[in-house]
Design a protein around this nucleic acid. Sequence first.
DNA 1: GTGAAAGCGCTAACAC
DNA 2: GTGTTAGCGCTTTCAC
Lengths: 333, 333
Amino acid sequence: MPTLKDVAKASGVSVMTVSNVVNGRPRVSEATRRRVLAAVDELGYQVNLTARSLRAGRSGTIALSIPRADHPYFAELAAAVTDALRPAGRHLVIEQTGASREGELSALSQARLQMYDGVLLSVVGMHDDEVARLQSDMPLVLLGEKRMPDHLDQVMLGNFDGAHLATAHLIARGARHIAIAGGTRDPAETGMVGMRTAGWRAAHVEAGLVPDERLVLPPLHFEMSESREQIRTAVAEGLPIDGVFAVTDQVAIGVMAGLHDCGLRIPDDVQVVGFDNLAVSAHLTPGLTTVDPRTDLVVEESLRLLDRRLSGDDVQVEHLVMPVRLVVRGTTR
Amino acid sequence: MPTLKDVAKASGVSVMTVSNVVNGRPRVSEATRRRVLAAVDELGYQVNLTARSLRAGRSGTIALSIPRADHPYFAELAAAVTDALRPAGRHLVIEQTGASREGELSALSQARLQMYDGVLLSVVGMHDDEVARLQSDMPLVLLGEKRMPDHLDQVMLGNFDGAHLATAHLIARGARHIAIAGGTRDPAETGMVGMRTAGWRAAHVEAGLVPDERLVLPPLHFEMSESREQIRTAVAEGLPIDGVFAVTDQVAIGVMAGLHDCGLRIPDDVQVVGFDNLAVSAHLTPGLTTVDPRTDLVVEESLRLLDRRLSGDDVQVEHLVMPVRLVVRGTTR
DNA sequence: GTGAAAGCGCTAACAC
DNA sequence: GTGTTAGCGCTTTCAC
């Protein structure tokens, strides 16, 4: 690869002048500029971003760390962040952690994160203390499901509120035996699953109902095929189910398929509500009633918090919980 | 951030020795090693990967460049590549290039790719001349839809074969008025849309049928809502349709929703086949018959080609077209 | 075993 | 307007 030096030699000026031209800085005569650009073209010069980053101390790049790209919620999040960054000419790269603690630890090695100007971090498997050890002096915003260490900025979804909204809606529409697909019986669980289960419970209690613990179908890997199988088994076992709150839309899609396999009609026999408002959810038959996690707000707030850090202001840590809303479609009456 | 120099000072050795310890090189006495590691711990030293990359000329990272992360096909591709790389402990980042309207590979994003040891580049939507301008001396494999310049390794999907398979299947199952959702009437179109349309045509011809040009529904943005609207309009206009080959599963999902909106039953009134075999397609009601693009093979071959380049062997350029297969589900009879 | 010197490619700061 | 100098943090080379 040709370097600035090569271009300088070819056009008979100094490296610095080439740098000035390449970076569009003023105070370069039109003649020189043309000569330099000609040499750039001829040699096929490309700026070496590694060298620029080392020198400048900034890379102009932000990283978004997500568990898996094929998890549609995170894929849609990634696209939303990219879109939000584009107008400002900033660049995003996506790091995948593989939804495991080990993966997070390696992908998020301090050394790697240092390459970025800032990091938006979706934490799933890492332990609290591991997250806590992350350099607090680098611009970092947690997109957490669960409550994370106090010294780091964090934007959380309205997990509890959304689950509550979803379950209350099912109750309002007449469901009385509401399973939670992907819920937990473990009260110590404080992650996404724990909070959404808590919302499911709370909505029951508020309506004067007692949540049926048999209808807590434990989380698998949030995969459609597993959820499909799980709900089929539950129905086959004779559990009384006339409503399902699925902790994610992916799970909900599996549940819908499984109910259909059992010959049950949605919403006539069983009503279903999901969580995530995936793009596909609007186009299922019937359309999936779901909780909109307001990814737009999550992105907006995350970038606001990150920008504060990037601008170097020494500001207060913020922990935000975003509002959610219910999108009612055909899977509920 | 502390540097090698700081650690060297703190432990009373030279920078070089610290580097040797940090990189686990031999020929360092046990006593020195311990002393250095103690200083590393104390100062919280982290290697600066930018500096290392600049000096070493390698970053240890591979990039996968895709148009958008929320395009499920690419999201699933990204996850598949990551999974394939994980056992070897190699690192992948996802770059989104194609999301911009014009000039997908701007000078800057080209330079960005140089930061990586190797790049898997999805060239959907890129213009031929853009691709031709790509530095051919960097390890690069094109994941192309259309035939690309000869000097670059390329792995292509079986676009023509898949479309042919899908359409022939519809014909075999009795469809005689087969629309192509996302097809083109422009014979000069050589991209994914062109090749899949060519497959649709060829299957007609082989069966002694004449493809109905009115049933070529032009490509929009491969979004579900647009396709839904499009098929509704086509049906409302009274076009005779008893089968639809959708150029992607996303389009197919929109088509299914649109047909349902019109009160048409699938597969009884209209049969549908998609292309991509997305994870969600198996769990729709009815399940979507679709072309499996064999992403597993695409990934395997791409990485093989990339590894050849990475190992520096000066090898023959390869252009591969992967086989496809049809997955028959409920949207066809 | 350990260290000194050179330089990867770039740009900030300053001189002319 | 243009050039010179210095140095970002690291590793390669070679001397001791």
